[in-house]
């Protein structure tokens, strides 16, 4: 490396001499390359000035003393820049370390919160969850009960980044500890509310919709804690309806009761759950309206659930000024005979 720097130093002198005589563009281009090489090799600004002084001295042994003094003065003036540059370099390295730490956290989150779509005959499920930043504050989880029921939790932590991610792990393990087939959605929310209220900072809270599908009865039971309402697609009529939900977000009042609702699902009917990242999407300054989301779903409705949700996300991603301001999660459940 030193050899390269030596070469560059020699080159600098040659270019300087040539430029003083000819003022040609080529020398300027040449010095640009040399300076890039200096940067690469961590040569500080004051070292370049020192090099310049040395070169001038060699080229013009009789240089005007005033000019020489002025160059020494400039050298002194550049020293702080050199220090600042070194600081930036250290920060850059630290930033790199932080970034890789966060990406370790993100992959750990994936492992901790990992969930598999249950394989149930007569049920087609698809889900996509995209974090706005590295860590995801949205969460979904499937539980397969011994009685054949399927539990589906979808949640959104208000507050982003690392605290939200840590909070999600707590929620997941709380849900895991409940005896699934003995607990109804409204009881699960009531219990989780207590966990969140006791353990989480007051400015952070969670919205969740918890549903339970009973394949034997083709019935979906659900309860919502302030979560973005989902949609029910009635295949016979070809219409979407907003799912009726009412309930306070988790973590605000210690003793909260949740309403439970029931929905009968027929062949090819769909239930759509989402987080507010979907309805908070922006295309430039414009919000993407719910109706537009449903139109896009309709466009891909013939596809299997997983391809359907993936295509809906891709549709929005393709918009010219698309901006994902919040984590985006979309889940579709379709009954098939």
């Amino acid at each position: 490396m030193d050899k390269i720097v030596d070469l560059d130093i020699a080159h600098y002198k040659t270019l300087l001499k040539k430029y003083i005589v000819t003022q040609d563009e080529q020398s300027l281009y040449g010095v640009e390359l040399v300076s890039k090489s200096f940067i690469k090799n961590n040569i500080l600004p004051e070292e370049i000035i020192s090099l310049h002084i040395q070169a001038l001295g060699e080229l013009y042994p009789d240089i005007n003393l005033d000019v020489k003094h002025s160059m020494d003065f400039l050298l002194e003036a550049m020293i702080s820049y050199g220090l600042a540059l070194q600081e930036v370099q250290i920060l850059r390295e630290e930033q790199f370390a932080l970034k890789s730490e966060i990406s370790v956290a993100a992959s750990m989150q994936d492992t901790l919160l990992g969930t598999t779509i249950p394989d149930v005959s007569g049920l087609d499920i698809g889900v996509i969850s995209i974090p706005a930043n590295q860590l995801n504050g949205d969460y979904h989880h499937f539980v397969k009960g011994n009685d054949g029921s399927i539990g589906i939790a979808m949640a959104d932590v208000i507050g982003k980044g690392i605290p939200a991610a840590l909070c999600m792990s707590m929620i997941k393990y709380a849900i895991d500890s409940y005896p699934e087939d003995k607990m109804s959605p409204k009881m699960i929310l009531k219990n989780l509310n207590r966990v969140v209220e006791r353990n989480v900072d007051p400015s952070m809270f969670i919205t969740m919709i918890y549903s339970q599908y009973l394949p034997s009865e083709s019935k979906l039971m659900y309860a919502s804690a302030g979560h973005e309402p989902g949609f029910y697609y009635n295949a016979a009529k070809g219409t979407f309806e907003e799912i009726e939900t009412e309930g306070l977000i988790l973590g605000v009042l210690p003793d909260t009761d949740y309403k439970q609702y029931e929905l009968e699902i027929h062949d090819q009917d769909m239930v759509i759950f989402l987080t507010d990242g979907v309805t908070e999407c922006r295309d430039g300054e414009r919000f993407i309206e719910t109706e537009e989301v449903l139109n896009v779903i309709t466009e891909y409705i013939h596809l299997p659930a997983q391809e359907l949700v993936t295509n809906v996300y891709k549709h929005f991603e393709r918009l010219q000024n698309f901006q994902l301001r919040d984590d985006f999660t979309l889940l579709i459940l379709r009954k098939e005979v």
Binding site: D156, I158, G159, K160, P202, S203, M204, F205, I249, V252, D276, E280, R325, D326
Partner: peptide, 14 residues
């Protein structure tokens, strides 16, 4: 207003 704003009003309510 996004959901972060809600957090402020919940804190204020408390």
């Amino acid at each position: 207003m996004d959901s972060t704003g809600l957090g402020i009003f919940v804190s204020a309510l408390k």
